[in-house]
Design a protein around this nucleic acid. Sequence first.
DNA 1: ATTGGTAATGGAAATCATTATCAAATAAAT
DNA 2: ATTTATTTGATAATGATTTCCATTACCAAT
Lengths: 127, 127
Amino acid sequence: MNLLRNTEKHLSAEDIYIDAVRINPSIGLTTVYRTLDLFSQIGVVQKCDFGDGRARYELADNPLKKSHHHHLVCVKCKTIVDYTDFIGEELELMQKTEKALSLKHRFKIFNHTIHFYGICSKCRLEA
Amino acid sequence: MNLLRNTEKHLSAEDIYIDAVRINPSIGLTTVYRTLDLFSQIGVVQKCDFGDGRARYELADNPLKKSHHHHLVCVKCKTIVDYTDFIGEELELMQKTEKALSLKHRFKIFNHTIHFYGICSKCRLEA
DNA sequence: ATTGGTAATGGAAATCATTATCAAATAAAT
DNA sequence: ATTTATTTGATAATGATTTCCATTACCAAT
């Protein structure tokens, strides 16, 4: 959790493992996966897939989380851009939707993700 | 493309391969992957990751697509629920956001996904 | 009709993230 | 202190996706 709190990046399980080994050299990759899965299930960590074949993990939204953000993904070079603009406007709608969905589908919802997919300027010029 | 047009499901590459073989028995799985990747890059197909280790593909939004929908994911049992409610309200905001993001980050955006994460009623009762 | 070059194809092997297995280590309970 | 249960990590297994490469399809120019 501390590793995730202290970064703005989207860390993969292996990234986290490499960091964790510096703190506790005897830790195993399996434990990292197990713990991330646990954290994800209790809702404190958000597992993200950006389509590059490996999962990323970031702190789920809560008081500890500095900034809620959404993602902009380039489907060519797989670049991921975080954006925090327009979040305010989105938030109200998302909360409304979340509440309605919770009731209708009997889900206890604790997080959401929004991804926009497209092609970044760099890849568009190269094409 | 026809296979994707004629289903409401989220097909995996293998699902599509199995269907494709019935039409052209000599087609290879590699070609299916290659073609799906191509379609995804040109924006007519949306590649989705639901956290179960295999990618799913569906028609990207366009006039051919019957219904735009978003996803509700149970982080315990990995169940995925499509919902089409509230889409109308979301759409206006998403289009506005999309336009603003396109300008600011110089992305050509052609799709978006919204996922809500939580725990379904079944898993909540079992816990 | 033939040629030659390029692009597309598919099968097999390789890759790589993730999961399962299991024995050892640690903690908890009696 | 001894037994029991839980957690851990190393290794192996799994399985989706990619890479590699030989073969084939395509097509324009001869």
